[in-house]
Structures are given as C-alpha cells and as structure tokens.
Amino acid sequence: MNIRLTNRGNTLVAVLNGELDHHTAEYIRQKLDAEMLKSTTKNMVLDFSKVTFMDSSGIGVIMGRYKNIQKLNGKMSLAGVNEQIKRIFEMSGLFKVMPAYDSIDEAINKM
C-alpha cells in the first residue's frame, strides 16, 4: 500500500493506493500523523478510489485519525468508497460521524 499526500487549503488530501489491512495500517497511520503534525492543515479527506482491499483494520485507522482531527476542531470526510468497503463502514457506523463523497473535489467543496 502507498499513500499520496497533498495539501489543498487547510485540508490534507490522502490518496490511498493498494490493500489496507493490519499489516499496512501502521504505515498509513504514521504517514498521516506525521503530515498532520508538520502542516497547518486541520481537515482531512481520505480517498479510497484506489483501495483494492480493506478489512476492519481500516476502521481503526480512520477512527484514530478522526479523534486527532476532532481535537483540532477539524473535519474529516471520505471519497471514492467502493461497495465492499462501504459495507464495512456501514456495519461500524462510520457514516454517523463522517460523510462520504464520490470524488475528492466534491469532498473539498463540502468541507
């Protein structure tokens, strides 16, 4: 799994690429936390359009970042979530705390 990070205004956009499981979660967590620490952004968009597999380890990564962003009074949203991943998000009640949009642009516009 790799991750591409860009800043758009005060929003960190992270494009995840590959398989997100327990093995890759730690790397993603470190990358996101390090970027949030060094930049002045307070919002985050996680793009899942290139994620080919995710299990419940993904929920842990998202909720952990969500807690950090809440402390900054920031907002978090998701983009490009496929049907399989959406089922896991629905099961865990994730959409009760953050919205999902079709594209990164839409997520940023509605931030």
């Binding site: 979660a25 967590r29 299990d55 419940s56 380890s57 929920i59 842990g60 990564v61 909720m63 952990g64 896991i88 099961m91 865990s92």
Partner: peptide
Amino acid sequence: QPMFTSRPDMERSGMGFTV
C-alpha cells in the same frame, strides 16, 4: 460483540467478528 476490542491501544475497531 460489535465494537468490543481487547486492544483499543492498537486502534483496533472491535469489528473483526462482526465483519
């Protein structure tokens, strides 16, 4: 049980069995 985890320190979601 959904959301139960013995390892919240590891950011586990407690959703494994539910999935």
